[in-house]
Design a protein around this nucleic acid. Structure first.
Lengths: 331, 331
DNA sequence: CTGAAAGCGCTTACAG
DNA sequence: CTGAAAGCGCTTACAG
């Protein structure tokens, strides 16, 4: 089933079929309608491969994503698709689970580049600037959800530092003076690393006593934090993601520790459906804005805009019962 | 940057480059290594379009998905990708948000078919059997997450009926005799419709008094249910999804209704991170099993298996405090 | 083991 | 407005 079958059935040339189906206006109405009907009757689906090859350019946008099982990435994914579609582009995606270090990520990147997409949004921290750079010459690439400190690639990211500082100020404003902070390495999760670091720095600048706990897997550190709370060594804990905060809440509950009376808890992300029911105070990251700006930036670059585009979007802190310890009255 | 550039640099023919890069063993080791080096130095990425066209077959698997912002679909997406990758296939996906009725879904389907993928997993209820059927002749299609009653398409689905019955039995076992059930139309959400219907039927068969509440949007019905509870007309409500259950919990809380004392609540899905903290009793659908079986089925069909494959996977009910009303002691 | 050549299914100057 | 022909970047018989 090729374009020639349609041409034969419509009684016109292959050229006319192509033009009619592409919606070009160099075809008579009669030809157009005959072609459409023939294509319809035959159930003809043009080969994107052949079309891309012949025209020399794809009009599809590519998306490279991190594991969508994480609600924050799932939402980012959906929003990127939505904005791409709104701009009249088809969007194809590939996901890389976090455990496939390096190899899988690069393979997926290659595949997307091989597909000759018009442009690419990369929403996984798993690929370094160095790994991306060689491809940036071939096609427009915008990194989403993580800043590009190199200044060499377009990037639309969350203001993780600002968010971390805001979380710290909220904790301080609620009267906490001894606080535990879960901190990851940059290679575990770049955003969590920035958040944790910013929280620690800001708290210290505010004169708060900080206990840094180095963690990796999402369930680590919760027990230690609860121990500290029971010993009254800290009255609050700041977690660099909601998932980690949930784990703290779980352990606290299982140990009979009251939240926020014995231990206040803050998270980071704010995407989890039902977080309001849990009463988790958190920082809501602006996923929709990042997705929208990433697509907008990509399209500008695809359409020939100059220079390197870098944007950061801010979210907002969400107060909730898990951080409800009253501010001590001034004496 | 084409295969000819690599050939020139390696000092061999285009044919040899192709063979070397495809990993065929009709090439000398010397040629192979020279080609690899040349390709590496040049940063050559083969055109998937050209390759697909020339070889006549793609080896990529396609995925058509519903909105990944829903955790259940997000997880399904991730797992499908994972199993596909484990089988050595690249997997490309397209998402359709629920609001794009018809047009967007079909456009995405066309694009994926146009990409000439080797096979396709369709994980959205938005496309009817009739819309899918014409393409099933062109390439293998497996529907995931929803049964194909037509018996014409391969399908791997959740046993929604069995799950609904299990929820109903649990509610009955906890002593409830007057129960509200939120029920949707099939066109709002097919799975929710099956679940709701099964819950109602099973409860009635058990002699339970059922109040059916027709709902559409996810926030509908919660207020009505709470009113019924306050009037002691029902002691429990069964929701066909966790999202709906969360909304009931929200309204109940805002009205000062105690859960489960005044109103027991059950959900359906069991995917939500943190649902354990909310204490929601629910039915955990077997997402991982469905994803695994869908990919397995697709690969079998791609490899020439005969017949129509249809599978259903069962999950399990998860007891939790939201359904903790004690069973009345036998007298 | 190697390469010249045909061909995959389209698009697009070009000539009419 | 229409069509014959060249060409996009690969793969794969075929002949050597």
């Amino acid at each position: 089933m090729t374009i020639d079958d349609v041409a034969r059935r419509a009684g016109v040339s292959r050229t006319s079929v192509s033009r009619a189906l592409l919606g070009q206006n160099k075809v008579s109405d009669q030809t157009r309608s005959r072609v459409r009907q023939a294509a319809e009757e035959l159930g003809y689906v043009p080969s994107v491969a052949a079309s891309t090859l012949a025209s020399g350019r794809g009009d599809t946008l590519g998306l490279l994503l991190r594991d969508a099982a994480n609600p924050a990435y799932g939402l980012l994914f959906t929003e990127l698709q939505r904005y791409g579609r709104e701009a009249g582009r088809q969007v194809v995606s590939m996901t890389v689970t976090t455990d496939e270090h390096g190899r899988g990520q690069v393979a997926a990147l290659h595949h997307l580049v091989g597909l000759r997409v018009a442009g690419l949004v990369v929403a996984t921290g798993g690929l370094s600037t160095e790994q991306l750079l060689p491809f940036a010459g071939i096609l427009p690439i915008v990194r989403a959800g993580r800043p590009e400190e190199s200044g060499l690639l377009h990037a639309v990211s969350y203001d993780e530092r600002g968010g971390g500082a805001e979380v710290a100020r909220a904790i301080h404003a609620h009267g906490h003076r001894r606080v535990a902070v879960l901190v990851t390495d940059a290679d575990v999760s770049y955003p969590e690393w920035v958040r944790g670091t910013a929280i620690v720095e800001t708290l210290r600048a505010l004169g708060v006593d900080v206990d840094e706990l180095a963690v990796r897997r999402h369930f680590e550190g919760a027990t230690e934090v609860c121990d500290l709370a029971r010993q009254r060594r800290v009255s609050a804990v700041a977690c660099p993601s909601d998932m980690r905060a949930l784990q703290v809440l779980r352990v606290a509950r299982s140990q009979g520790l009251r939240v926020p009376d014995d231990l206040s808890v803050t998270g980071f992300d704010g995407i989890l459906p039902g977080a309001d029911l849990i009463g988790l105070a958190t920082y809501r990251i602006p996923v929709e804005e990042v997705a929208s700006a990433a697509i907008r930036t990509l399209l500008e670059v695809v359409n020939g805009a100059e220079g390197v585009h870098q944007l950061q979007m801010s979210g907002r802190f969400v107060e909730a019962p898990s951080l409800d310890r009253p501010v001590p009255a001034p004496t």
